[in-house]
C-alpha cells in the first residue's frame, strides 16, 4: 500500500516551487495526482512529464483508478487532488484522510467566500462539513512557511 502523510488539495495541481516545498518538508520524492481532468488531458500530461524535476517521480491517475492504485502501489508519496469533491470521493471510498492541506479555493460562479482566497459551493460546504464532523484535520496553507488556518475555525 502507498504510504502518505498528507493529502493536498490544489486546483493548480503540480505547479513549480510550491509543490517542491511541500515535498521537501514531507521528505518524499514521489507525487501522485488523482484527477480525472488531468488524466484525460494528454497535452498537460506531456508537459508535466517533461518539466517536473528529474528527481521527482510523478504519477497521474483518474480518481477512481487512483483509489485502487493507493492499495496496489508501494512507497511513500504526496497525494495531490484538484478539488474538494475528489477529497470527498476518497473519504467515501474508505481512504484515510490523516491530514489534509488546502492551498486555496478559487472564486467561481455560484461560490461563497468563507475566507481570504477561499470560496466554496453549497455542495463543497456540505462535503467539508461531513469531513470535519468525522474528525478530519483540514488546514488551509499555501506554502509550508505560511500561516496555517484550521478550517474548523472558519466553517
Amino acid at each position: 500500500m502507498l504510504k502518505y502523510d498528507l493529502i493536498r488539495v490544489d486546483d493548480r495541481l503540480v505547479h513549480g516551487q510550491i509543490l517542491l516545498k511541500w515535498m521537501k518538508v514531507l521528505e518524499v520524492k514521489r507525487v501522485v495526482v488523482l484527477s480525472d481532468d488531468l488524466n484525460m488531458d494528454p497535452i498537460m500530461k506531456a508537459i508535466l512529464a517533461k518539466t517536473v524535476p528529474p528527481e521527482i517521480q510523478l504519477s497521474i491517475w483518474g480518481v477512481e483508478a487512483g483509489i485502487e492504485k493507493i492499495y496496489a502501489e508501494n512507497g511513500k508519496a504526496l497525494i495531490l487532488l484538484q478539488d474538494i469533491h475528489s477529497l470527498f470521493i476518497l473519504f467515501e471510498n474508505g481512504i484515510q484522510l490523516k491530514q489534509v492541506s488546502i492551498s486555496r479555493l478559487p472564486c467561481e460562479a455560484g461560490k461563497e467566500k468563507i475566507y481570504e482566497h477561499m470560496f466554496v459551493s453549497k455542495e463543497e460546504r456540505r462535503e467539508l462539513g461531513v469531513l470535519l464532523n468525522h474528525g478530519v484535520e483540514i488546514k488551509i496553507q499555501m506554502v509550508p512557511d505560511s500561516e496555517a488556518i484550521k478550517l474548523s475555525n472558519i466553517l
Binding site: R12, V14, H15, G16, Q17, D41, I43, M44, I47, L48, T51, V52
Partner: peptide, 16 residues
C-alpha cells in the same frame, strides 16, 4: 514567466 508554474502550464495547453 515561470517554468513549471501555472502560467507556463496555461501557455503550454494553448500552444496547440
Amino acid at each position: 514567466d515561470l517554468m513549471g508554474g501555472s502560467t507556463f502550464h496555461a501557455a503550454g495547453k494553448l500552444s496547440t
